[in-house]
Amino acid sequence: MHELTWGLPVIAYFFLAGMGAGAVTVSGSVLLRKGGFGASRFSVARCGALIGPIPVMLGTFLIVFELGQPLRAGNLFHLINLSPMSIGSWFLNIFIILSVLYAMTFMLPGSSPGDRFSQVRRGLAWVLVPLGIGVAVYTGIMLGAMPARPFWNSPILAALFTLSALSSGVASIILAGVVFRRKSKDVAIRSDYENSSYLLITSDALLIAGELLVIFLFLLFGHLTIGDIKYAMLAILPGGQMALLFWGLVVGVGLLIPLIIELFQVMPKLLHNREFKTIVSLEVAVPLAILIGGFTLRYTIVVAGQITAPTTL
């Protein structure tokens, strides 16, 4: 019987913080980028900026009350040491403050690309892009830092969590776009919307492909080594306790199916420069599948790490 030292609140936090940090990071990069998104740059950035901080704060709420002593959470900020959790807490703390400020610059009445906050907004975006990556990457480093947990003890886990966070971020921006941006009857806005959807879906496909590569390397490393890590990896390989969740929901629903659908959507324009049309049902279904996969990824990794252990005493 294995008890989970880190259970659902931690898993949910990893997912929510990753998604929110990813959304803000993507928002910041879209805002700072000249060209590409054109006129829709601001509204895409606004989507990411407005939805990003919410899951991060929700996740942080969960993680604070997962502590044995929630009232002592402030102890984390008495010092910085080299513990990934210490550095991560500082990142998270600063990220929450700045991302809320960043979101506020988009919420003020009459906020538009050239308003009086545009310099502040750009400045915050410059800081939030690396900070968001930091928040996404530290969760993976935190798990990877422990030889006592062979399943997690891999530097590539941090890369996997980062790519998954960015991909979930893009997915949440696409979802928010369907809700808030799609309705417009204006032809120019519609065409901007199509263009930004195309760019978002293309980037997401790239991120998912990267994730698949990292998962492949993660498994390959487990296969090529011997000892604790090889045995631990059995948990997600076919026949393992977590195999069905991992291959079905993480790889299948969360990565392969969205990647194939997204490629089918963007390939005609990417390769043959044909017209790109968004399909509402797919715009909702694909990001949802990605988010389900993102959550299940955290779930399988966090649980598999705790039901496996070193094999020799």
Partner: peptide
Amino acid sequence: GQCIGCKYCIQACP
């Protein structure tokens, strides 16, 4: 008096 109960050490102990 300092411990916040984050359980990181519990995970990390082999």
